[in-house]
Structures are given as C-alpha cells and as structure tokens.
Design a protein around this nucleic acid. Sequence first.
DNA 1: GTCTATATTCCGATAGAC
DNA 2: GTCTATCGGAATATAGAC
Lengths: 186, 186
Amino acid sequence: MSITREKIMELGETLIRTKGYNAFSYQDISSELGIKNAAIHYYFPSKENLGTSIVRTNIQRFEEMLENMHSRGFDEWQQLETFIKIYIKSHREQKLCIVGSLGPDFNTLNETTKTELVRMTEIILKWLADILTKGRDKKLFFFKEDPQNKAVVIFSSLVASLQLTRIIDRLDYKNIYQSITENLKP
Amino acid sequence: MSITREKIMELGETLIRTKGYNAFSYQDISSELGIKNAAIHYYFPSKENLGTSIVRTNIQRFEEMLENMHSRGFDEWQQLETFIKIYIKSHREQKLCIVGSLGPDFNTLNETTKTELVRMTEIILKWLADILTKGRDKKLFFFKEDPQNKAVVIFSSLVASLQLTRIIDRLDYKNIYQSITENLKP
DNA sequence: GTCTATATTCCGATAGAC
DNA sequence: GTCTATCGGAATATAGAC
C-alpha cells in the first residue's frame, strides 16, 4: 500500500474527527501533504470513497482489538476499561470518535459510507451488550436495566461526553468516565 | 418581528438539527421560502448571525421552560421528565438537539456562535446538576457519583442516543430513556 | 424595508501530462 | 502509476434595484 495513500487516510480521519465530514476538503489534505488537491482523487476518486475507507479501517481496528483482548483472556471489566481508554486517548488528542463525528452528519453521507457507519455502530453495541450480559452473569457487573439498552446508554455517554468536553473544556473527562464505571460496580 | 425572519430561523434550526451546520446553505432556506438566497442576507448578514440567533432562541426557550416548571412547583422528578420529553419529541421528529448537532462542529463555528453554544451547554448542565443534588437530598434520586459528573453523563446519554438512533433506527428510544431514569430510582 | 442581480471564492471532480 | 492544470457548479456575501 502506498505511503501517500496511508497519509491521506490518516489526515482524513483526523479532519473528520476534528472539523467534521462536511467541513473538511481535499484541499485541507493536499496542502498539508504539499501536493495538489486533485492528487487525492487518484487514490480516492470521490470523498465518498475516502470516508468509507476510513470507517472500514476503524472497524478493522476495533475487531483487531477484540481479538487481542480475547487472546489475552481479558475479563469483562478489563475489556470495558480497554474500550474506555480509547475515549480517554481521543479526549487527550481533542478528537471525537468516528461514530460521534459522522453520526450527526448521517443524513448527508453517501450510501456506502452510511452502510459502514451502521455496521461499525452495530458491532460496537453488540459487543458492549455482550460483555455487559456476561459480566453481570459472572457477578462482575451490577445493573438492573436491559443489557441492550444499557449498552446504548453507556456508549452514548462516551460518545457525547467527548462532544461536551469540546464545548466546555474544564469538564474532567477522567471523572466522567469513572462515573460511568462506578455505576456498574456490584 | 418579521414573519419571514421567523420562518428563516425555524427552517434554519430544522436544517441544523437534520443536516448539520456545515451541510446546509442559504439556498436550502430560500428555495423553500420561494425567495432568492440573497434575501436571507438581509435578515442575517452572515451564516454566523443566523447560527448565533438560533442558539440564543434555544437558550431563551429553555429558560422559559425552567420558569414555567418553577411556577408550577414541579419537583425534581417532574423536572427531569419534562426535560427528557424534549428529547423524545426530537427523536420523533428525527432531529438532534442543538447541542448534539452543533457540538461536533464546534471547531468550525464562529466565535459568537461558539460563545452562545458554550452558554447554552453550561446552563443545561448547571440546572441538571442542581436538580440532581436537590433531588438526592430529598431522597427522590439515588446515586453515588458526584452530581456534576452525573449531570454530564446523563446529558451525554440523551444527546448521543439521538445520534445513535439515527444511525440504527430500530433502537427503542423510550426504553433507552427509561434506562437512564431507572438508574436514579432509590 | 425588502428583496434581486451579481461577484467572488472555494468545493469536488475530470481530463490529460509526466 | 502518480500527479497537475483546469472545469463546472455551489457556497457565502455585496451592491444596488424597487
């Protein structure tokens, strides 16, 4: 795989997660890379291709993380904390997550990008509901709500607290995420 | 106040909450109203003016709701449920809330719009932390976490579950919000 | 006071040079 | 295979007509 192509995807992802999909342009990427905007079109004929590829890479990254956690034999608490660490890192880098940055723009996305974003969100929610169920069965977690709904609530907390801390930067993200896990303790 | 001006603001708000700030244009509004796009510039010289005015109106609306609830003597549960009803309505109308739609675009907004969005978010979070504190003192709510953090977590859940249900529309919003309140019951 | 004709800039995208 | 010159159109915004 071409190095330029990789750089474009990395920059594109950063731009989506900082400025938003509809606010960034091929010019933003090309000027940073010192090439013309049309050069980007060689690697990604349309913005749709770029957006879709970026989401696909993120799905791959998430699935690799799951495999990694399984091979290491992580329990449900360790899995949840590993996932939350992604959000702490995003916060430190002043970026939103992919779901939280593309989600609000959903109605303006092309069909292929929509499809991948749906797939990514489903994979995350399914995994989260899964570890919530298993963790509760093993008495690691305690909660009364339906695991599927609880998964949406927890994921929503993570997604939007990145958005809120961007608006009000004095909010302490670490304490916020502790509030989320505190809630699950038996 | 001019009727055209009001229609522009209403349409503008709908567009922000469905397509996002950077995806909608003056053309979208003018074509709907059967006028030229430049006519919008008479009422709102720049997009910044329109965006800022829309946020200000939303702050006013929220503050009027607070006054209304106080004059009716709503307790903390009633206040929280009234607030959540706004989100159920938004979900039904397939719209995000203002904070959830402008938040991800924060870095691309003009200074005055940023300022108003910060103010709106602060007002909501302050009110929410307030009723959580008072409600817990009165034994209406039960939770162990710090009220300020809990306010961010609850608000985040509401904001982002609108975004997630847009991506995956089979998610049941009513059950999600019940998970949020369930969690506060003593 | 209200709106239109028009300017300007920037966007995503195509055709073709190297 | 990789990139540049350039297009057509859409975006925000100004100047001025009614």
